[in-house]
Design a protein around this nucleic acid. Structure first.
Lengths: 150, 150
DNA sequence: TCCGATTATTTGCATTTACAAATAAATGAA
DNA sequence: TTCATTTATTTGTAAATGCAAATAATCGGA
């Protein structure tokens, strides 16, 4: 086994890249991209999120997200609203067309999870997910200080 | 727990993104990027790799890699050679400056592994890595057919 | 109330990226 | 040997990306 095969960030990256590439290719015929899926999935989980929230949830840098959302708005997948409570903020909402696209993407996304975890039993799958959540939490220590947090 | 927190591709992506972002930022003062590190690490493991091999190892798309290598060559970190055995192919070699940079990056990379896996015991860490290798292998099924492979 | 500091988002701009097409070389069958 | 096919890399080009600066609004203290 090569040294890289024992290096966690490498294993993480190549696994993520493989899922991402395949998913991208598969949803392209539907007029979707991986990034639009990420936004739609985040809104499916909770609609009306702010840009900053969406950025953190999707791991898409805010300025990139702004332009991605511009495009999604033009396609009538989402709509921006000024946040009533805080006029600095913008909330994002899936439109009916956005929800329709989400419903088409959901089963594809589920299939990716199934394929990725083929041969894993329930406990193994849950252990992997738990480990990834721990890892993510561990890395918060090296995050650029945004607000104070902890 | 939100639905996304149970979705593996999401967990994978956000963990990878967090490591990537922090690493990027940290190596920037050294004049390096995450992508140059990936190339150097692959060459550190085995020097004289072909572009295609490097692309697969680093998960960097070949045409992107070509231009990345252009830049690294200008910085005298690597050099291209025509493969003696097959003149279609190009092999890439770390230069002394490239190896010096690699030596500076290695301890940083090691620290990322340590931070990421803080609180994991040896068995847990190895289980995570093994799971990521399995996952990567599972996803090969959905790869765009390159050569025949299995 | 007014103002400086903070927070949320967008914009400017240079790079990076990816798909597709082009180039270049090897390979194998006729 | 010749040529069509396959393989390896690069190039054309448009889009995506990310940092830094700009804009816009809130907040809290004087």
């Amino acid at each position: 086994m090569n040294p890289l095969d024992g290096y966690l960030p490498y294993l993480l990256n190549r696994a993520g890249a493989r899922i991402a590439t395949a998913f991208c290719e598969e949803v392209r015929p539907l007029g979707a991209t991986l990034q639009t899926w990420r936004v739609l999935a985040a809104l499916h989980e909770r609609d009306g999120r702010r840009m900053g929230d969406l950025s953190e949830t999707t791991s898409i840098e805010v300025s990139t997200l702004t332009r991605l959302v511009d495009g999604m708005e033009k396609k009538d997948l989402v709509s921006r609203r000024r946040d009533a409570a805080d006029a600095r903020a913008v909330t994002l909402h899936a439109t009916p067309a956005g929800r329709r696209l989400t419903r088409r993407l959901l089963p594809i996304a589920e299939r990716y999870e199934t394929v990725a975890l083929a041969g894993f039993n329930g406990a193994e799958a849950e252990a992997l997910k738990a480990a990834l959540r721990r890892l993510y939490a561990n890395m918060e220590a090296l995050e650029k200080p945004r607000r104070q947090r902890g």
